[in-house]
Design a protein around this nucleic acid. Sequence first.
DNA 1: TTGAAATCGTTCGGTCCCTGACGATAGGAT
DNA 2: ATCCTATCGTCAGGGACCGAACGATTTCAA
Lengths: 164, 164
Amino acid sequence: MSREVALTREEREARARVEGLGIDIDAFAAVSNVFRVANAVRNYMERNLLAEYRLSFSGFTVLWVLWVWGPKESNVLAEESGISKSTLTGVVKTLEGLGFAARRPHAADGRRVLVEATEKGMATVREIFPRFNALEGEITRDLSTAEKEELARALRVMLHTVEA
Amino acid sequence: MSREVALTREEREARARVEGLGIDIDAFAAVSNVFRVANAVRNYMERNLLAEYRLSFSGFTVLWVLWVWGPKESNVLAEESGISKSTLTGVVKTLEGLGFAARRPHAADGRRVLVEATEKGMATVREIFPRFNALEGEITRDLSTAEKEELARALRVMLHTVEA
DNA sequence: TTGAAATCGTTCGGTCCCTGACGATAGGAT
DNA sequence: ATCCTATCGTCAGGGACCGAACGATTTCAA
């Protein structure tokens, strides 16, 4: 059922180089292409959309999480954004500088800090997200709906294994 | 043909939040899961394998490219490693510090610089790559061979679209 | 009630990563 | 022979990124 798709030159040459070393080529192809796509799409989004708002990919991700779930403790926000606590500190600092987010002390626990999107931050996500999603559509335009679903499913399986 | 795989809690809640905004859910699911997996696997590799050699993911990537293709001009090396020229300057500097790579002036063109892996660098890749690939196998162990091939194929299609 | 242990967010040091600007070198046209 | 332009790798500046160490606060056991 699989239409032919040419391997890139890099992939062809790499295969030739590792031939006969007992390498699991299918695992190699699957994983390395995940990195290649993630890298390419990340750069694409930053250059063609996010730069306009002076947002990095991480900055947008954090803001998006805040938009979806509302105010969150740093702790949880870092976890859901897929970055470390210490990185989040810096990203939120940048977001504050842009007027997109604010910090608020926790009412009951003096150690904790709540991060929330400002009204400006919320408005910005409302503006960006549909455009972001439109680009996602562009990027996946040569895949059928079934193929997109199957792709997402396979990735969820991997995620489940890695995060176990 | 698609076995059931539970959406993560994050994905379920995010869908609920963006419902009715005319969002292309399939494109959203496909792309966002690429990022989640890339992130998770990158961290996994750095923590469980690369840290042992004091290599970052990028450092390993560059060294691997050198191992596969031999000495390369900075220019081309950056391109194949998926990073910018200026980033490569820093990464190669780190690799030099670790004794894994060396710089050599181009014979005919005074502007160019050739980067090559040292013997120690080559030996290190020979040692790491099979272990790296074994982890790739682990990570994809719950996908059939056909599913891995289909995953790689779908990603190549996206790559072709983004890099066009 | 008080001291030990756990947990919180931040800081620190080091690397990665980008864009934009730069000096150096090369190559082609006059 | 000498400009003009293109291309090379690097540097500067700003932000992202991590693990480890840290002070502040909370919690729990004695």
